[in-house]
Computed example of a mutant assay.
Amino acid sequence: MTRVTVVEDHPLYRAAVVSLIDEMVDCQVVGCHSDAESALAAATDEQPDVVVLDLGLPGTDGITALSRFRAMDSPPAVLVLTMSEDPSVLAATLRAGAHGYVVKGSEPEDIARAVEAVAHGQVVFGAQVASAVLAQASGRAASGPAAAFPGLTHREHEVLELLARGRSNDDIAALLFLSPKTARNHVSSIVGKLAAGSRAELVAKARDAGFGSS
């Protein structure tokens, strides 16, 4: 049973999210909070597997709370559920360790699928922000660091950017809409082209070239 904590300051929306999750198979709401501090204080007792987190909270803001959740000894996966479609906000949540980002206008079934996905270790982004995620990955590849590795394809530059950000093969597959096998093949190809002895060495080379720094 997936244990879920909901952190949302709007009472009607909070109740709707709690009701949605309670209706899901294999999910149980173990905490419901209107602010980040109460959710963080209760996390040890609630032990959530997933935190559904609004960003516009009173007191401690959502991104700060996200970082603190991810710094816990047994960190929950965090699904951001927010009104914002701002790419800079999305980027900040990625840096803080979010597993997913869904806009509040999404259909209930899309929110439910996102909760299930992050509970199973996947990375998920709503349709409204998926293009921004890809733009962040491909934008870095279009210039700058990409010049350091001209032998890589455009797609391989995208994969390398995500590797430099610490993303797993499964994350890369989800973000770039690839099959897991295709993502693994891209990583193997990059390792060979850059003569890296290991994945860690590949990531180090990418970061030295400026990938993953935005």
Rank of each mutant, 00 (worst) to 15 (best):
Q28V: 12
V187P: 08
D26N: 15
G97A: 03
P108F: 02
R184V: 06
T182E: 13
V18W: 01
A137D: 14
S131W: 00
V115S: 06
F177N: 10
I111L: 15
P87G: 04
G144V: 00
P180I: 00
A112V: 03
F177C: 03
G121T: 12
R199L: 15
F149L: 05
L176R: 00
D49E: 11
S67W: 07
A130T: 05
D73W: 00
F149P: 15
E158T: 06
S168Y: 01
C32F: 02
L194R: 09
G100K: 04
L194N: 13
S198T: 08
A43Q: 14
V78K: 02
A42M: 04
T64F: 04
F177T: 08
G105A: 02
Y101M: 08
P11N: 00
G151I: 00
A204G: 02
V51S: 02
D45H: 06
R70M: 14
P150N: 00
K104S: 11
S143A: 13
V18R: 10
L12Y: 02
V30T: 10
E161D: 14
A173M: 09
V203C: 06
L40D: 04
T44D: 14
V124K: 01
G192N: 13
V18T: 04
L194C: 12
G197F: 09
A183E: 06
V7D: 11
V133A: 03
G139N: 05
G212L: 12
E116W: 02
A164H: 11
F177G: 03
I63T: 07
Q136W: 09
A39Y: 07
A174S: 13
L57N: 05
V103C: 13
L66W: 00
H154M: 02
T44N: 09
E116S: 15
G100R: 08
D61N: 10
S138P: 09
V203T: 12
R184F: 11
R113M: 05
A174H: 04
H33V: 01
A130P: 04
S168N: 07
L162N: 13
G56R: 03
P48H: 04
F177S: 06
D54E: 12
L178C: 04
V7C: 14
A77N: 14
T93H: 01
M83T: 15
D49T: 09
A43M: 09
H120M: 12
A114D: 12
H186T: 02
R199C: 06
A142T: 12
L12T: 11
H33Y: 14
G121F: 09
A127P: 10
A91L: 15
D26R: 11
A114H: 07
S213T: 15
A146Y: 10
G192I: 01
S143H: 12
V89F: 03
Q122C: 14
S138R: 07
R155E: 05
A200E: 13
